[in-house]
Write a protein that binds this DNA or RNA. Sequence first.
DNA 1: AGTAATTACTACTTAAAGGTAGTATTAATT
DNA 2: AATTAATACTACCTTTAAGTAGTAATTACT
Lengths: 137, 137
Amino acid sequence: MNLSNTSQYAIRILAYMADKQDSTLINATMLADALIIPYKFLTKIMTELVKANLVVSIRGRDGGYQLKKVASEIKVDDILYIFNDNISDKQCLLGIGVCNKLCKCSMHDQWMKPKLQLQKMFQESSLADIAGEGSKI
Amino acid sequence: MNLSNTSQYAIRILAYMADKQDSTLINATMLADALIIPYKFLTKIMTELVKANLVVSIRGRDGGYQLKKVASEIKVDDILYIFNDNISDKQCLLGIGVCNKLCKCSMHDQWMKPKLQLQKMFQESSLADIAGEGSKI
DNA sequence: AGTAATTACTACTTAAAGGTAGTATTAATT
DNA sequence: AATTAATACTACCTTTAAGTAGTAATTACT
């Protein structure tokens, strides 16, 4: 039970960008070096973040990336959603199609409480909440 | 954020076996048919469960499988552990090595509470707790 | 002893995630 | 206009998870 590599990278990238809001643009080389993420893989992720409207890109010389919204408006859940890594309501912990009150998998009841808490955490945590504070990047 | 196919299958298999405790042995064909899991993949998983000491196998004609312990003694966390799918304490949500109070990733604090609740749920839920009750199998 | 029914083992194939390489496009600077 | 530095695109390669196939080993029954 864990996040995909891609989601982990994306969260770290965006949290780093939120932390460096002062400098208008950050380019892929800077991000890849700072976060120790393979450059080519990072640019692939950046393009997805641009398409998902979380990031704006400026092409050409002196180009780079910046957040499209203020940090407090970008939630971790928004990031996970892009990479299909969020916790959906219907999704069954045991993978038996759709799970709900009427048609439960055997772990439905036990899963309910931690699931809601996880969802809440992802939905309420913004980049502003997680950026900075001298944490690992 | 989800369990691997293999873990999902394993939980379903063991919950089903716990539910059918009356019939001493259950063979791979019965399990594969009942749970709609590919037969060959299921036997592979069963062999791992035997090696992990959760299941006993009887080889040869009229052979099959049965739980090695009583259902209440087998926790979901024990199953996830086998397939490296449990939630370890050290494991960092963002994949930046080891995460702890002294050396935190940016989501460490937010992750702590849901993580503990998830761990607790997996560690406290036994096959006896999740088997039966007319749930999907 | 032979047959049938079962698990165990070994090896392979397929699909998805993770990662890399090269080229096209864009735009500022000279 | 040419050069340079950046993102975007397309295609490929590598690794891991998921699934399949065939055979060996084991054991009850006849």
